[in-house]
Amino acid sequence: MRHLITPLDFSVGELDRLFDLADDMREHQERYAHLCDGKKLASLFYEPSTRTRLSIETAMLNLGGRTMGFSDAGSSSAAKGESVADTIRTVSCFADIAAIRHPKEGAATVAAQFSRIPVINAGDGGHQHPTQTLTDLLTIRNLKNRLSSLTIGLCGDLKFGRTVHSLVNALARYQDIRFVFISPPELRMPDYITEFLDDRGIHYEEYIRLEEVIGKLDLLYMTRVQRERFFNEEDYVRLRNFYILDAEKMSLAKNDMFVLHPLPRVNEISVEVDNDPRAAYFRQVQFGVYVRMALIATLLELV
C-alpha cells in the first residue's frame, strides 16, 4: 500500500506515468467516470483549506466515488483530543482512501504510519503540500512539453514559502534545470535548499528585482510577499513593487514564458495580467484536479 506524503515519494519514472494518466483523464474524462464507483474518500481537514479540499473531492467525484469527512477541527473528534493515530485507525474502517490536512508538521507521516488505507497529505503546516507540487509539475509539463532544460524563476517569499521549497526539490531531479530566485534579501531561499543545490551541482542565481531577470525565464512561479514578513515598514514599501507582476514587467518576458501561482493571489499579480495568454494560474487549478484524479486512481491501484 502506498501513500503520498512528500513529492519525493514517487520516482521520476512513477511521476511520468502519473502525469501520462492525468493527461489521458483530461482528454477522455468519460472513460474514467466510473473508475471509483463504490469507493469512498475521507477528507480529514483539521484546518480549513477550501481550495485543496474542493479539488480533492472534485477529483473523487469525477471518478464516480463519494466523499465524506470534516472541514475544520472544531467539528471533528480532534476537538475532543483524539490523536491523529486513533482518528486514522478509525477512518480506515470506513473509507478506502484518506486525504489529511493538519496544522502540525509531520501529521500526515503519523497518519500513514497507523493507516490501513492510502493517505494523501493535503498539507501539514509549513512542511509539505505534495499535491500542489504534483499540480505544478503537471502544469509545467503541459505548458512546456517537458520537465527538463528549463530556466525557472521563483519570485516572492522564498524563505517561508513551502510550495517553492517542494517545487525546487522536485524539479532538481530533472536534467538541465536552472533556478533563478528573486526575493527581498530577508526572504531569500533558506541555506538548506541552496546547500542541497550546491551539493548536486545544480545551477541557481539570486536576484532582488524581477525586471532584471524576467527576460531570461522560461517559467515564472509567483508567490505572495506578506507585509508582516518584513523587518520594517520602510523595507516593505521600498521593495514591494519589485515583486508585483504587471503588464509592464510582462512586456520584458519571452513570448512563451508562462506564469504560475499556487493561489490565492492577493495583489502580487495585477489583474491586467490575467488576460495575457501566458498567465497560466487558473489553468493550473484545472490541472490540479486531473493530477489528483490520477493520484487517487494510482493509490487505489485501479489503473
Binding site: A85, G106, G125
Partner: peptide, 24 residues
C-alpha cells in the same frame, strides 16, 4: 524542538531522527 511538529502533541510517538546529511 520544533513547536509546530506533530510529535509535540501526539501521544506516545517515538522520537526518531534520520541522518539527512552525512557530510555535515
Amino acid at each position: 524542538t520544533n513547536p509546530r511538529c506533530i510529535s509535540t502533541i501526539e501521544q506516545e510517538l517515538p522520537q526518531i531522527f534520520y541522518l539527512a546529511d552525512d557530510h555535515r
